[in-house]
Design a protein around this nucleic acid. Structure first.
Lengths: 108, 108
DNA sequence: AAACTATGTAAGCTTTCCTTACATATGTAA
DNA sequence: TTACATATGTAAGGAAAGCTTACATAGTTT
């Protein structure tokens, strides 16, 4: 069992609708504008992750403030980049610590 | 958004089938035997959590070893009790630490 | 004004899910 | 051994959920 409950795409549109309060139309429209990327089962049913749901909620909030798709896309991209950079940083830090560790125990 | 991705019941039976490799028949049967407890939407569609899926996999493994529902129920109950006890313990420990903390800063 | 954005809604169709019921192979108990 | 219990398959018929396409519309941008 894969373990990443947050990003695994297992939720169908009806539940997404429930959890976000958005209409199916709105949910699909956000896909059309390339703001979310559900997967599809072999027969065409869309599957979303909890992460997608969070993104949808953020989008809906922004849109209420008048922000539109193009800008939202920029913002989401920036956010993703930032997250990835942070993940990279963490990785490097761990590697650094490991290196330090092995240098310490070097001539064991 | 509630945060507990592992226990939130959002997955329909088709996906559970995919993820576990069990037949719908088997999945529903385990419910009949009171080994899992999916929720229902207002219209009767079953909704499972990742946690349910993990339970189903455990059940399937045990059954292959010839263990049957009655015993499985006992085992699952024991496991649940154990988990709850552990959660309790953690709570108590935290409370203990908090108490200690406030005793330390007592006459502040 | 023309084009674009965001959303609603309807039609028609396919897929998914539900319940009920019967069949069956094994295992267990009377 | 006959009878019951367990675990699973499968089929029928119906209801719910999902999909695409298309048209309508109120604002916004160009």
């Amino acid at each position: 069992m894969s373990e990443d409950y947050k990003t695994k795409k297992v939720i169908s549109i009806g539940v997404v609708k429930e959890l976000t309060g958005l209409s199916e139309r709105q949910i699909r429209y956000n896909e059309e504008r390339k703001l979310i990327f559900p997967e599809r089962t072999p027969n065409g049913t869309r599957k979303y992750s909890f992460s997608d749901i969070e993104t949808l909620v953020k989008i809906a909030e922004k849109r209420e403030e008048g922000v539109q798709s193009m800008e939202l896309k920029q913002e989401l991209k920036k956010e993703k980049d930032r997250e990835e950079t942070e993940a990279q940083m963490r990785k490097k830090m761990i590697r650094g610590q490991l290196n330090a560790h092995f240098r310490m125990n070097e001539g064991r």
